[in-house]
């Protein structure tokens, strides 16, 4: 509270740092840049804000401004030397870069911001990128080496690929939430999760690309969401001792050679969307605990000749069982 006693008596700069930082963090960098010229205290607030928001959207048509925004971000990072960055949010459209060939330079700059953030002990990182059709963006390995990062959300536009770095570290990660869209992972991903991510609670792998096989062994995750729509995923194996909620959207053209293995003794909610023909499930799901519930988001995919039985106990459900099974489907459920 002592800060309110300083000589400046105005109603903005006399706010305590954490409150004033909240204000500054919700401004665009252009506003921040202007605010930093107002007074010394304002400038200090702008330089020391713990959360940075880089958003290219207002400058999509303006190449000069876009470059100057990038320069400003770099200037901020250099002025902030030593200030920890709790949160960095980057929204960038690499597909529409007008001021260089192919967005290579902009991509390089984004990578350097990510490095910078990791050096400044970033805890929250949100990355939204629009890429050219068919192109890929590789997340830098420093992200999985970071020991401070607790939440990572990375998303690329449809028709492009987010490449997750290969596992090459024994550094223990602090990640609690990992949310990846359009991601391509290699087989080392499962190793990394089981070896390094001891605190990971929520794992979201959405729109997985060009990945044939996923194996997840974790003793910490409680929420898992996997969606695969490119027909490439063949094998999915999940062993998670305390997993409570899982949702799976798995599309494929032919069920040949597809396997799904679940070892999830504490699972309480399983939401399923997509093609589930001929998957060897009966056995696995029979292990569900008594309060488990299985929900289908699209019952139409269940009209198969294959009888799949779901063993689960509906006694503990508060809601009446929704009419999920259409009359042509041979899917049945029984109460244990």
């Amino acid at each position: 509270m002592s800060k309110s006693l300083r000589t400046t008596t105005d109603r903005f700069t006399s706010l305590p740092d954490d409150v004033a930082h909240k204000v500054v963090s919700s401004l665009s960098l252009e506003d921040v840049s202007r605010l930093s010229v107002v007074s010394r205290r304002c400038r200090q607030l702008c330089i020391s804000m713990p959360s940075l928001n880089v958003d290219v959207r207002p400058y999509l048509q303006d190449a000069t401004k876009r470059t100057r925004l990038m320069n400003y971000v770099e200037r901020l990072f250099s002025l902030r030397r030593g200030v920890s960055t709790h949160r960095l949010c980057i929204g960038w459209f690499l597909d529409s870069s007008v001021n260089d060939k192919g967005g290579g330079e902009e991509e390089y700059r984004i990578l350097s911001w990510l490095h910078n953030a990791v050096t400044c002990n970033v805890k929250w990182l949100v990355l939204y990128l629009r890429l050219k059709r068919g192109s890929a963006f590789s997340l830098p390995p420093c992200l999985i080496h970071s020991t401070s990062l607790e939440s990572l959300t990375a998303c690329v536009s449809i028709n492009s690929i987010l490449e997750f770095p290969s596992y090459s570290t024994i550094e223990l990660s602090s990640l609690k939430t990992l949310d990846l869209w359009g991601v391509r992972i290699d087989e080392s991903f499962g190793n990394w999760v089981s070896t390094c991510c001891k605190f990971l609670r929520s794992l979201y792998l959405k729109q997985i690309k060009e990945t044939e096989s996923i194996a997840i062994n974790s003793s910490s995750i409680t929420k898992l969401c996997i969606t695969s729509m490119d027909y490439k995923l063949c094998h999915l194996q999940v062993s998670a001792w305390i997993l409570e909620k899982m949702s799976l959207w798995w599309e494929f053209d032919s069920a040949n050679n597809r396997t799904l293995q679940l070892s999830v003794p504490m699972l309480r909610m399983f939401v399923w969307k997509g093609n589930i023909l001929r998957l060897p499930l009966t056995e696995n799901l029979a292990a569900l605990k008594s309060s488990a519930s299985i929900l289908f988001r699209s019952a139409s995919t269940l009209t198969s000749q294959n009888l799949i039985r779901f063993y689960c106990d509906f006694r503990n459900l508060n809601h009446p069982i929704p009419n999920l099974f259409d009359k042509h489907s041979q899917v049945s459920y029984i109460t244990l």
């Binding site: 105005d10 903005f12 700069t13 401004l27 007074s39």
Partner: peptide, 24 residues
């Protein structure tokens, strides 16, 4: 609400809004 009083404003306008004196 405070942020909305800063957004889009010129330096002089921000100073006037909050009665901040430049001390550079």
């Amino acid at each position: 609400k405070v942020a909305s009083m800063i957004r889009g404003k010129k330096v002089e306008e921000i100073r006037e809004t909050f009665k901040i004196k430049s001390d550079f």
